[in-house]
Design a protein around this nucleic acid. Sequence first.
DNA 1: TAGGGGCCTCGTCACACGCA
DNA 2: TGCGTGTGACGAGGCCCCTA
Length: 354
Amino acid sequence: MDGSIDDKSEDSPSSSGSSQPQNLSTVVHTITAVPTAIPNQPVQVQSVIQPTQQSVIQAAGQIQTVQVEEDGEGHLVRTDTDIGIEKRREILSRRPSYRKILNELSSAEAPGIAKIEEDKEEEAAITSIQTTIPSYVQTSECTEPSSHLPIIYGPPVPLPSARMQDHSKVQGIGDTSQDSSSFKKVTAGQTIQIAAANQNELTTQGLQTITMTNAGQGAVTAAAMPAGTTIVQYTQGDGSQQFVTVPVSISPAGEVQAYQIRAPSSLPAGVVMATPTGITSPQQLAEESARKRELRLMKNRYKNREAARECRRRKKEYVKCLETRVAVLEQQNKTLIEELKSLKELYCHKAETE
DNA sequence: TAGGGGCCTCGTCACACGCA
DNA sequence: TGCGTGTGACGAGGCCCCTA
């Protein structure tokens, strides 16, 4: 296999003939390639494409599949075919991760192809996740991670991305207002006094002030704001503001049940959880299980949100890598064409003289 | 200048896959 | 086998540009 591809499609990047790398922001080819460096050439990129490997091109909302087949002479022939959704799903599910693809690329020591940092950066990211307040509660002025703020499992209020956040929309929990239906207005108002069963449990987390100014629960009843939870803003001893999501159930009489704020050993430092006390009835148990389920879902959503960010970052990196390869291959193709021309001329000249 | 379309980014869900 | 992770799909919202 020499890695050459006879591209039969007219709109493929390699057949464009342009020296500019094609904008691949919406065109993603799933091709495993191993670049290797050889003397006298800047970079030799050898495509290693499995004969049965299929690629998916998604452009302008249309998904087209690319079947790569061997033509019997060691050449890989790409044929575009229409396939059904099931087949497409099957293909997509077999797709290796961007990290794997890029790391395979980088494992060949190709210059200019950066390996995706897996360990240290990811560990740092995890640490930052565990110790910083998520972006959806950061104001636009607060883009730097704040190490003393606790984690919030899930978005108490579904805020848009930091880029999309209008500063006027996010001014901290308690006075957050919004102008679209997806934003849930949180009004300042109620003050909930939460009693701690053991003051030490608070002080171990550095929480010294437990008088909490709370947004009214009724004002936070959003789809993404599970019933029975509320946002609590409190002040630490050093005066810094912190926010936590706290499950709160209100009795028919309008009384707020007491919750302990504790620091479970399973949670990282800076994370506080609130657990109810004195729940005995089946209804309360059911509420408690539902609350735990919501908490788990919120946690999953939060993690998935971070995972999606990472995935998109890797995807961008992968696309950049492909663009670089396209540029290199185009340059190499030009060089080879020029070389072929010169050799042809030399051969013709030699034939004429003979 | 309003609004319509295209593009980008993000959050969320669903699903496949790998691992303990 | 359950759980965590990675990623495609989808919808929503914002931004930009063009046009009537």
